[in-house]
Design a protein around this nucleic acid. Structure first.
Lengths: 172, 172
DNA sequence: GCTTAACCTAGCGCGCTGGTAGGATTTATA
DNA sequence: TATAAATCCTACCAGCGCGCTAGGTTAAGC
């Protein structure tokens, strides 16, 4: 498993907010009930999104959360990064100071570190796919089950519909 | 963190085997000492590679391990999959039956599941970057610090040297 | 001033990760 | 044939992070 449930819950929350009009704030309770998620835990999740300035909040009665920007301008790598911390395939990537036995990547010390090359490529693959997906893509998909054809879909999809992507893409 | 140390250790082991001639087997003890890894734990790691038929073994004195195929014909997604199990960004991807609260991806139930679209794309990005890297790439890189120019480098690199890739790619 | 909400912090059980321990089995060699 | 060197196998264990709960404080509407 790669991402924790924080990412899952947080993304769902963002999608839910994206479905609402930003006129009036949405309470966490409403989101928790709609998605069947524990409210108290959602509070911790949304706190990360707020600190990253991806959502805004209003306290008190009829308070709640709403998106800080339009869904089209929120790329999912920001969201996932806010929820999960640095996006890295290996421990030594996130904290260079944690010099555990696990990681002996000497920094550019003559002979190249083979695993670092591999993890760098993987990291690139992850980040690219996250960057090329906006929150608007997900909101659209959740509304119709399929994004509008001819819209500014990310380059990777190359015209394939999101549904076809789902069927084909999961083949490991 | 995405991949566990099994992946790190196992990939290093594969690279080490790739550096040796397949004439005579290499003992785990030698690998463990060369890489500074715990021998007993490496045994469990290499067992996964053996079950996946990526390495072969000979028991007894002067026994050891060697690659089952040429490094050029071993793509890293096979290796990582053998070490880590199914490559999935989220729990529900690896085991559809573990219906925890975490995952409520109804299978194609009308309205599309937005997070599933996202994780599918991420999974594609990971698997693609792993498939496009062969063990030979890593062995080459570990030998020279840079792959031979003009060789059959994976399409993603597009002529950029591996060193440049390392410098640029890690920027989150 | 009651209710509704965001906000904060501490704690906790469970499972998985990263090992260790101790052996059994197989093979080369003296 | 005894010994050493190696793979192979299983059980066990400590630590820690994840997912979550508990219990509050603060702020805003009616």
């Amino acid at each position: 498993m790669i991402f924790s449930s924080k990412a899952e819950y947080g993304v769902r929350l963002m999608v839910e907010l994206g479905r609402q009009s930003p006129e009036h704030p949405t309470s966490l309770k409403a989101v928790a009930e709609a998605e069947g998620l524990p409210l108290a835990y959602l509070e911790q999740v949304v706190a990360r999104l707020r600190k990253a300035e991806l959502v805004m909040s209003a306290r008190g009665a009829h308070g709640g959360y709403w998106l800080a920007r339009a869904p089209e301008e929120i790329s999912m790598d920001e969201v996932v990064q806010a929820l999960e911390g640095a996006i890295a395939p290996m421990e030594c990537f996130v904290n260079e100071h944690t010099e555990r036995v696990l990681c002996s990547h000497e920094p550019d010390a003559g002979r190249g570190c083979a695993t670092k090359l591999l993890w760098t490529r993987v990291q690139g693959g992850i980040i690219r796919s996250l960057q090329q997906t906006t929150l608007a893509d997900l909101v659209e998909f959740s509304k119709r089950g399929e994004p509008v054809a001819g819209e500014s879909v990310s380059p990777t999809t190359l015209g394939r519909s999101a549904k076809a992507e789902l069927r084909a893409g999961a083949a490991a």
